[in-house]
Design a protein around this nucleic acid. Structure first.
Lengths: 208, 208
DNA sequence: ACCGTAGCACTAACGGTTAGCATTTTGGAG
DNA sequence: CTCCAAAATGCTAACCGTTAGTGCTACGGT
């Protein structure tokens, strides 16, 4: 009972990792569609049912660590300093995430994803989950007196920014461009802090 | 060659419609997941392969007329009067679409969709297609000198508005609320037409 | 009247996924 | 140390959506 100690959890995590690694290797070697679940299971030396006890679907093998993504986003909202404005915090987090997934080392994986309709579809519904989670985090912030609809809207827009920037020719510039729009959308719902002052317009958005 | 006249086309359309009607009836009677493709085909008195020659997937049976949706959106962009502003045109179109799909008569269908993960997933990727189509239409408008990224962004936001409003407690109010944000986002990329002559002190920072 | 082809039927299979049940491994209680 | 309950894994056999292959039939243009 109580807290299951060490070994069991480690072994389970190890099995999970072995499956994910094997799967990704095979997928990259021979193509996602050309590799069957039964093959992955055999190569990882586990039963098919075991594989499915670790991963809900074949696609989930590829997006193994999507919970990190979710976590980082909510953390960017809940973990920011008092009075730190929301949108810039999200902007720099998205910027980091985009940089991470457009890095050369990640290129083969994203190429594989882009080529498989099943994987694209899966990623899309994953993003919707992330948007919902983010919306909840935004709505829970007492500093932000937003409508439920406004929270969900901004969350969607932010996730859209990630998705669009990832596919853009110049991902980092695209993040800036889209967040410029998001900022405007956000302030339209949040007239409390007028942004007028003459000259600060664009500078604070173009950090780095 | 040329244009195959009359009977053949009518028969084909009739078969398609019969399949769609049968499917929807069975799905609503006994639940989407509880009805198999083989059952639908049998009840519609066609072969399974025939069914799949009319519909690309089981989910497509439910979203039978999604091309109308796409058409209406692009029409709202390309078919508007000269100098008619983009966003309000899209707003009223989305408003109409939301009204249409939140009507009481459509309630059982959307309840079914919301309850089936497969259908939700399908609808999501459908929306992404629609967003891309809409983005193309926006980018093609010579009156709107936008970036490719800005076009795609606005298109996504508009589709998001539809999706969010459909699920909101007060759909029509939600459309207005979200489009208020979209309007602001749009004008952030389009500084040519200031919307509040008096207080708009944002100077034209020439954007890239 | 004739022929090419579009539409359709049938069978068999493939691949992801799951239910059911047996077996092993692990952590903790006695 | 021993023993037990639970967790983890394994195996089999299926279900279901989907597709390839093949052939037949009826329609429409010539």
């Amino acid at each position: 009972m109580t807290v299951p100690s060490g070994r069991r959890e480690r072994k389970k995590a190890a099995t999970r990792q072995k499956i994910a690694d094997t799967a990704l290797r095979l997928f990259l070697e021979r193509g996602y569609d050309a590799v069957g679940i039964r093959e992955v299971a055999a190569e990882a030396d586990v039963a098919v049912t075991t594989l499915f006890s670790h991963f809900a679907s074949k696609e989930a093998l590829v997006f193994e660590q999507d919970e990190d993504f979710e976590q980082r986003l909510t953390q960017a909202v809940t973990g920011r300093a008092p009075h730190e404005p929301l949108i810039p915090a999200l902007r720099s987090e998205i910027q980091a995430l985009v940089r991470h997934c457009t890095a050369d080392s990640a290129a083969p994986i994203w190429r594989m994803i882009d080529e498989s309709p099943a994987l694209r579809k899966y990623e899309e519904s994953m993003r919707l989950r992330h948007a919902e989670t983010l919306a909840t985090a935004i709505a829970a912030d007492p500093e932000l007196p937003q409508t439920a609809t406004a929270s969900r809207t901004i969350a969607r827009f932010v996730i859209d920014a990630y998705s669009l920037a990832r596919e853009a020719a110049e991902p980092e510039a695209a993040v800036d461009e889209i967040f410029w729009m998001i900022e405007a959308a956000w302030e339209a719902t949040c007239p409390s802090r007028p942004r007028i002052p003459s000259s600060d317009t664009r500078e604070q958005v173009t950090r780095r």
